[in-house]
Design a protein around this nucleic acid. Sequence first.
DNA 1: GTAGTAGATGTTTTT
DNA 2: CATCTACTAC
Length: 752
Amino acid sequence: MDYLKSLNEPQYEGAVNTEGPTMIIAGAGSGKTRVLTYRIAYLIEKKGVDPFNILALTFTNKAAKEMRDRIEKVVGTEARNLWMGTFHSVFARILRAEADKLGYPSNFTIYDTDDSKQLIKSIVKELGLDDKIYKPNVVFNRISGAKNRLISWREYINNPIFRADDESNMKPELGKIYKIYSERCFKAGAMDFDDLLFNTNVLFKQHIDVLNKYQQRFHYVMVDEFQDTNISQYLITKKLSAVRQNICVVGDDAQSIYAFRGADIQNILNFEKDYPDLRVIKLEQNYRSTKTIVNAANAIISKNRAQLKKNVWTDNDEGSLIELLKANSDNEEGKLVASSIFEEKMQNQLQNSDFAILYRTNSQSRAIEEALRRMNIKYKIVGGLSFYQRKEIKDLMAYLRFAINHNDEQSLRRIINYPKRGIGDTSVDKIIVAANDHDISLWEVLTNISSFLPGRAANAVMDFVTLIKRFKHDIETKDAYEAANLIAKGSGILKELYEDKTVEGLSRYENVQELLNAVKEYVDDPEKEDKSLGAFLQEIALITGVDNDKDDGEEKVTLMTIHMAKGLEFKNVYIVGLEEDLFPSQMMLSSRADLEEERRLFYVAVTRAERKLFLSYALSRYRFGRLKNCEPSRFIDEIDPMFIKVSKKYGKVESSGLSGDDYAKNFINGMRKTTTSRPVAKTSTYKPSADFEPSDTSGLQAGMKVEHPKFGYGMVTEMDESGANRKAKVHFDDFGEKTLLLSFAKLKIHSN
DNA sequence: GTAGTAGATGTTTTT
DNA sequence: CATCTACTAC
């Protein structure tokens, strides 16, 4: 038990108190994974628990794999038998085994978000509804939200509150769409991500014997990142541990960043009520970061209203100040960051892998990438458009999926006319309508197509059916690799891509080959028992971009979204694009709770840094083909200026406006004006006059009336000249109180 | 009814 | 900037 000696007191408590309900509140960088790892190792080694009886749930496959590796290092290969994985993968596995009890085939397809949205889109179209009002995104989120709160379509339709809510949002048909969506998924033998959890709940509720079986199996249940669980997930773990009560959850309310996915911070805040004899352990010592970073992070999160009491502190050095870089444009921002990395590397003997660049949205990576390439700094992007989301991969996967599950509507839509075989949209719509109107399966329509379509189209469909039957035969008689190869060739996808000699076409062809290689690797892996194509598809259905990152051993700077940065740490971290409306995102600013989530997101990002933290923002950004004005993020103001050093070295803002890159872009776009302003928030009717000319703000004082090009008229309530930047608090008529950095704010002084 | 093309149109985060 | 939509020609 040597490893236990390396733990501090609360960590040790967390590792050895294995019986009864336990909640570990783990501040950022406090060694939570370590505690969880040793806890499991302790159970196996000291308590002699069979790994088969331990269930450990994580949020990403990566986290699961990492923890399994770490446990394996301590207890050896026995750790392989642990039930460890994401909620989705563990319960998909259980659902496959019990699928018949819910009326699903065991080879059910898993729809990703893309599939779900496509299906919603076609349903909206079939119902003759306006897709400007019933936007697939919005409808999907509403359905997803309902499922995550375990509200079935029946309950949804019968609930007057939802109805009233939807009607006031001008979307009275949402319940109907939810119903049809659920029915169509069921008919297609498909579950979406939320169904994996929703249906597990249904399974455990309807089949007590099944629940009992798994209650008997899992003697110990552990949940990592508990703050990110939604109700649906929480209830599953609660049910599973109901008999033995050995449930241990680890989390940090300050790091809850998945509310948009239904994560409910109340889970962690209310856990105590559900388990009155709960043991609560707090890990408050941060081992990762400097005092400056810990304090700056605490400053941000302390502004949140709902939180658990916790005092994160560190013994580490004071460290250097947080550097604030400002740039004229996103391209210049990229250059600043790239050259800063270059210098840091030289001065402090660091490697590329010591650096991470974090951003709020994936699209922000472009400008950074360009700059890094120019300075010849190697980088890798984690996440983003994952391999399995690429069109060519999805196409081939659709063939594989459909050859296994002949009722998978979304896959059929993808492949029935790709490559082109003379079956147009109208025919496809007819097929799907026929299946629904006559209440028969898609495959039945396809195999009896002459009753539904006129001659020419029917012939094309019959050829397609023959093709699929052949593929099915291949799958049943050959291993996954051979079958996939035959399907790639037989479908015509390989030929289609091979003939495309453009750069993109070439890379698509290579990607398909890459997928085939992945199948081969799977088949050749001695640890995999089931070598069928079905088994392969099941395994990769829940794999995402992060898990897929291949390491070729080269030292690289890591680029990723802040969400992906969870659980990682780097010596130097750059957070870019710290602009109002981008981070915090304007889409999130509908309520105070949403702003709190953005703060937690920022907190997570900040605490990734071990030694140095760089914040940067651009005053204008080239997005979606347009150049837009930006303002520095309010988060900069929420950190005590004591911790910030405005970098003079890099942040040279020239008054002339645009850098070379942007001039070039403007020229190409034929734009004479340097910038166009961002659209104003919905509630506002304010439009700045065309000749808006900012005034000199040097004499600005509390009580003065001002005009802002975006926020309209307001009154200065407070001036702050103490820090590096002069700031003014302004109460705007339409937008409430804002803090403005005066060196950037475009203000017109009207009177006093 | 299908295929090809020119023009319009969004754009958050992840399992 | 890639994807979707509307239009035209077969």
